[in-house]
Design a protein around this nucleic acid. Structure first.
Lengths: 141, 141
DNA sequence: CGGCATCCAGATGGATACTG
DNA sequence: CAGTATCCATCTGGATGCCG
């Protein structure tokens, strides 16, 4: 069997967890819940661009992973609260680190993107007249 | 204008960076490059399940963000090396933190998933006979 | 070796409507 | 309020083939 000592194998547990965290909504929601329990539509309003479907789906996934907890209150119009579990709370530290990095380096990233996009479109050195020579497919189709 | 003080707005720069990091291949590649420069097909072989297309695409994205650097060597069969930039190197710390979390808590996550999947299918407390009562739409659709 | 272009199946996710 | 379900457009990403 191709047992490799490398942690980048598909079967590596780290990969599995990383895949889950590779979900922008999940990370954002965990960050929000770090400051206290929140209700469904409360979260929905807070995270701009998050559809009801994705919210529901993401919350279910996080709950399945044991990172958040769902509590139902039998109030008049039913109330549901989502909160971090003890396990989920251990994740806020790494996530905060990520957010801090993003906040302090966003400028450099944007600058790099601008430089890349500027040099990208045209040929870097010696443009030469690139007329529409080459694969001249007239009837573009 | 609906200017909100909340960092969860779509226009928030943090969101933009988080979105980029919300890419499992990107995180894995950064982790690999943390231990030194690597060549294209070398990375391809190391990350199981990563197709050529995604590798190329992800590397280009990381390069655009100024996190990695692409160097071409005019050797016989051309050689290309990818390495972290100084900016990229500042990211390995938060990423390592994430990986450490994953490695130390994977067990709890898997256990939570198993518990969830076990309790999910059936009704948790007091199953009661849930015959096919309810919205009985005979001619389904 | 290190890519890019094309094709296309399947996953993603928004909009909408309806339930408890 | 807190969802679930369906429809459907779009995007993702793998497979393949070709080029420098």
């Amino acid at each position: 069997m191709e047992q490799r000592p490398n942690p980048y194998a598909a079967n590596c547990p780290t990969r599995l967890v990383l895949d889950r965290l590779a979900d922008k909504w999940a990370v954002l929601l965990l960050g929000l819940l770090a400051s206290g329990p929140q209700r469904f539509n409360q979260l929905r309003r807070e995270v701009e661009g998050l559809s009801q479907k994705m919210l529901s789906q993401t919350l279910k996934g996080l709950q399945r992973d044991g990172l958040i907890e769902r509590t139902v209150f039998a109030t008049a119009p039913i109330t549901v609260e989502y909160a971090l579990t003890p396990l989920g709370r251990t994740l806020i530290s790494p996530i905060e680190a990520l957010r801090l990095w993003a906040e302090s380096h966003i400028g450099e990233v944007v600058a790099a993107q601008a430089a890349y996009d500027d040099a990208g479109p045209a040929v870097p050195v010696m443009p030469m007249k690139v007329q529409n020579v080459g694969a001249g497919s007239p009837a573009a189709r």
